[in-house]
Amino acid sequence: MDTVRDIAALRQMLAGLEAARLPGMADGFSLGAGGPERAGVTLARGALHEVQAARGADLPAAAGFTLALALRASFAGTDMGTRPLLWIRQDAAEAEFGRPEARGLQALGLDPARLVLVRAPDATEVLRAAGDSVRCAGLGALIIEPFGEPRALDLTATRRLSLRAAASGVTSFLLRMSARALPTAVATRWQVAPAASTPGEANAPGAPAFTATLLRHRGGEGARPVEGGTWNLEWDHETCSFRDLAALSRAVVPVPAGRPAGAGAADAERGTRRGVGDGLIAAFRRTG
């Protein structure tokens, strides 16, 4: 009888393992935590996703959001993010918003050595390079960034990219600086604007924070369609996941000196440093 019970236990274990491979679990990726996670938003791997900046000047935020998504997309199975990320940019975008900075990439949690940046002179070349790159299964993720509203970027072009992405399994992101809706064939469409961050010590700007609106979610393989929504999220580079942005936007009151050290745990979370020696807590202003 023991054997039977063992086999039953094994079956149960196997079922548990299988579940991890069900569509919607293994073939998609989520935003980690927070509102979208609770709403069941899953992004399909091997599909084309669109991230548009709410306004032209919000492109840095949209780029940060896209890089964060690309980073999450590149964690697949046993591969804990070693494959290269290819970022195809049009020259005009770089002239407008500057070049990527290695330590800034690190601050997002992305190893700069993984990034390959391609500069293309115009939108046609961007799409041409994207068409080639999306077929390369060795890429962790692909970011396509044309500038403005190029005529070449239409339903046909995006449909072609989607199909190729599905064939190769390369998760691709179309990063657009204009919020005007273009007829694009994408699995999800996000609109991103920066949000006020959770203030750190002495009212310092905190982690990257976004207001992300899910405009469209088509579902498909590995992802069930969900209703759109708007969430305030912040990016945690250590766990490489999004989380809810705390509702408060007022400054955190500095901890008064002289409080007992026992309250340290909560304070440490808020970013204050523990004073050494006499068991007091002091809030320091970071000066560089």
Binding site: L105, L115, V116, L117, V118, A120, A129, S133, C136, G138
Partner: peptide, 17 residues
């Protein structure tokens, strides 16, 4: 892929950090 893009667009357009 990197080689192909570098040959088409020019070597100074396919970059690493």
């Amino acid at each position: 892929l990197i080689d192909r893009l570098a040959v088409r667009l020019g070597r100074e357009r396919v970059l690493r950090v």
